[in-house]
Design a binder for these strands. Structure first.
Lengths: 241, 241
DNA sequence: TTCGATTTGTTCGTATGTATT
DNA sequence: TAATACATACGAACAAATCGA
């Protein structure tokens, strides 16, 4: 690797990401105006615009004309538009209502450890939730969180959070999810999940393994999600939106 | 809708898309240089750059420093990176080898007509193919094409094409796929598909309904794709790449 | 191999428009 | 209304990659 020197706008991008990663600028906050950033980094406004534009494209910042540029907040709407892929057969998306089925501290199995990049046997939180869409059970989630990142998280806090799970990560722990990787396969419902989802055992379910990452590719969560396909599926648009 | 007048860069975008849609600039070709386009549209180079930049983001053009800007070609590599979502459990993608199972002219059922935006009963081509990955049967496709767009397509031409299906659409019919919509659910294998995929009947399969669009949101193809989940799944990254 | 022409990539600076407060 | 902030647009200069003479 020749490691060519960074261009000016790359330096600005890195500087901004740095300020976000260390928590100097928090979610929902307005970041300094473009002329101010330009002076601070010693570049022109156009260069700042290029850097900020790329970060907007990466779902890290949002611009609002006349108001400023803000660190993204994981509001419900944002979640729905950026990360939530479950839709009904007409392509409509709706945020689910979740209930906690179990909440426990345990140790990471090999697969979880690999995905979260922690040591096998390191402590993790395991949370199972049942999600309802249109008031019908639709999704069962089996979530694993590295305890190191969420040391004081308890069931009450988790269940009574006002917004989304990613919103909780952000507001309480300063962890902003900027990327997820989904691997979708099909599976047969076992007795327990069939009962939870109100299906016959042996029904076909979507099995979604999703890992979520914050800045600099740090994994913060991995979950397995079982989706009832009676009314819903995984919707994905490739190309321009 | 007030229909505010287009900005300069939007006019340039529209002008370029127009030239693509009418086939004046064909896939693989180099489009005029930025200074030339700037003179032609009566705007500055910076404005052309913004327009071209957005079209690059929409997978319609590709820039190559020192060489020029080109209309995207559906090469195998391009397909693999932009539209092909099937990967093995380590996230590795590989282009499949396809064989034609059936090829016939028929009439559009209601669902096909709706998705292709043609009249119910309009003539369509139906093609079934079996795809192999790592030399094992992995995917069964059931493809519907509006005959109006592909009037002279026969089985031989389809089967003996040198590249991908989208590449054939582009090189022979001037239709460039720029967007697809995938709706993924789970299903149980019927006897025929189980036999084709070398699975037990009743195995869980991914059922992917995919519709492909060219410029200006015109649908050119819809297919149902059954994916064996023994070794593969549907891989999707949300957020920055 | 070298050199020069061409093309995109980066950066600067400035002016004006539009939305918000 | 005025101030602030992002959005659009212009023009200019140099860097970096490519390609053919």
């Amino acid at each position: 690797m020749p490691a060519r020197p960074l261009t000016a706008y790359e330096r600005v991008k890195q500087g901004i990401t740095e300020a976000l990663g260390t928590g100097r600028w928090r979610h929902g906050q307005r970041i300094p105006s473009e002329p101010l950033l330009a002076r601070r980094f010693g570049v022109s406004v156009g260069t700042v615009r290029k850097a900020v534009g790329e970060l907007v494209g990466e779902n890290i910042l949002v611009r609002e004309q006349g108001r400023g540029t803000f660190v993204v907040s994981h509001t419900r709407d944002y979640m729905l538009n950026v990360f939530f892929r479950i839709a009904d057969r007409e392509g409509r998306k709706e945020l689910p209502q979740g209930t906690v089925l179990s909440f426990e501290r345990t140790k990471a199995d090999r697969e979880t450890a690999r995905l979260l990049r922690i040591a096998p046997g390191a402590r993790v939180l395991r949370v199972e939730t049942l999600l309802r869409l249109h008031d019908r059970p639709a999704v069962v989630d089996d979530i694993r969180l590295p305890l190191r990142l969420f040391p004081d998280l308890d069931e009450r806090t988790f269940a009574d959070r006002p917004g989304t799970i990613f919103g909780l990560f952000q507001s309480r722990y300063g962890l902003t999810v900027v990327r997820t990787e989904d691997f979708v396969t099909a599976a047969l419902a076992d007795d327990r999940r069939a009962a939870l989802l109100d299906l016959a055992p042996g029904a076909a379910l979507l099995h979604v393994r999703r890992t979520a990452f914050t800045y600099r590719d740090q994994p913060v969560e991995t979950r397995v999600r079982y989706v009832s396909c009676v009314r819903h599926g995984y919707l994905n648009v490739l190309g321009k939106p």
